[in-house]
Design a protein around this nucleic acid. Structure first.
Lengths: 208, 208
DNA sequence: ACCTGAACACCGTTCAAGT
DNA sequence: ACCTGAACACCGTTCAAGT
């Protein structure tokens, strides 16, 4: 559970010449390709280097270690999901709680299932390295967005936006993850798509 | 993502003499100790062997590979949680939906937080190896137990026990996992303990 | 300023040899 | 019937040497 200072997980240096920007991008792409083609267990620094067309040494000039490589990918994926949720939030601002709940649930499901392979890859990386921190940060961001949405809902009365947003984020994030990870059939996902909005709506109605 | 046939994950042979039963137990205990003391990344076959007081070769006589070691631990943990839920289910049989929902949520939280370190260790192992299958099986068992409970509830009317149980299992399993994994404070857990039962109750009420 | 790749320490797994 | 531990293939990481 060795927790690394965030600084250590960033790329080691910024590209100063054009060719190194190319190199850094090639490494990034190669990592994803190897991950999807061979799985985590076969994701090797050498394999990534070969695929990227550089030597291992070069890779270590940009990423201090393997974790940093994976960290970069996870972060990009999480950011794209966050962005999707922010977009959804803008659309949902000033609606009533039922609409907000449904909108959030569907947006979350869409974002997660859009690139299901990538999402699964993320999950499979998440535990091997210490990604709790990054995921925690993402979840806190999400909670803030949701809280603002709840506070601004037309029919918000007795609801505590902080508390309700926390619970909603846990429900969304957790249920989708569990279903996706446990060898879910398409049926299961369809089921989740029907039931998750209802669950969110029911919870919000109950605490309002 | 190499999926192994379940048979390969079982201990390689049953102990035929007393000393090998002792050996197998020593290995199992040593694995947990190393896991808790040093973390997944430092969980090494050699380290486990040393701690267990046997040679690496001996370990491989009982567990065909490292995954099998971890698999044994995960399975034991999951079984103990399943057992706790079955006990709770017996107590809740024939109650109304609100009582069932609250009882399930609290039982799940208790089971998971009782040995929080072990649970976290499980999660950290879960993705590194292919434990989706085991976890999926556990979740399906849980869903069955919950479905029976819902079908037998005094005030069950329009509810579809299968569907509602699926959603409930996803909510319980997911939310607790997400909160525990993302560097949760004790405050967060307390919050979850208050909100999760309400969310489950609200959902059941809405679909009944 | 950037890249190379042999070299090092360590890990999972095996198997001939022991009791 | 069970155990040992040197040996093997492979992995992450480094660093002297090159352009």
């Amino acid at each position: 559970m060795n927790r690394l200072a965030p600084a250590l997980l960033q790329p080691r240096k910024a590209p100063r010449q054009a060719r190194s920007a190319v190199t850094i991008d090639a490494i990034h792409t190669a990592t994803i390709q190897v991950l999807l083609a061979e799985g985590v267990s076969r994701l090797t620094t050498t394999r990534v280097a070969v695929r990227a067309g550089v030597s291992v040494g070069t890779m270590y000039q940009y990423y201090p270690h393997k974790q940093a490589l994976l960290f970069a990918i996870v972060e990009r994926q999480l950011q794209s999901i966050t962005a999707a949720m922010v977009t959804a939030a803008e659309r949902l601002m000033g609606q009533d709680l039922a609409t907000v709940a449904e909108g959030l649930a569907l947006a979350w499901l869409d974002a997660k299932t859009a690139d299901r392979v990538a999402s699964l890859a993320i999950y499979s990386i998440a535990a091997e390295f210490d990604l709790g921190e990054v995921m925690g940060r993402t979840m806190r961001q999400m909670t803030e967005v949701i809280a603002a949405l709840l506070a601004g809902a037309t029919d918000a009365r007795g609801i505590d936006p902080e508390v309700a947003a926390f619970m909603l984020a846990a429900m969304l994030g957790g249920s989708v993850r569990v279903v996706m990870e446990t060898g879910s059939s398409d049926d299961d996902l369809a089921r989740l798509r029907r039931e998750l909005p209802r669950a969110c709506q029911a919870y919000l109605a109950a605490v309002n």
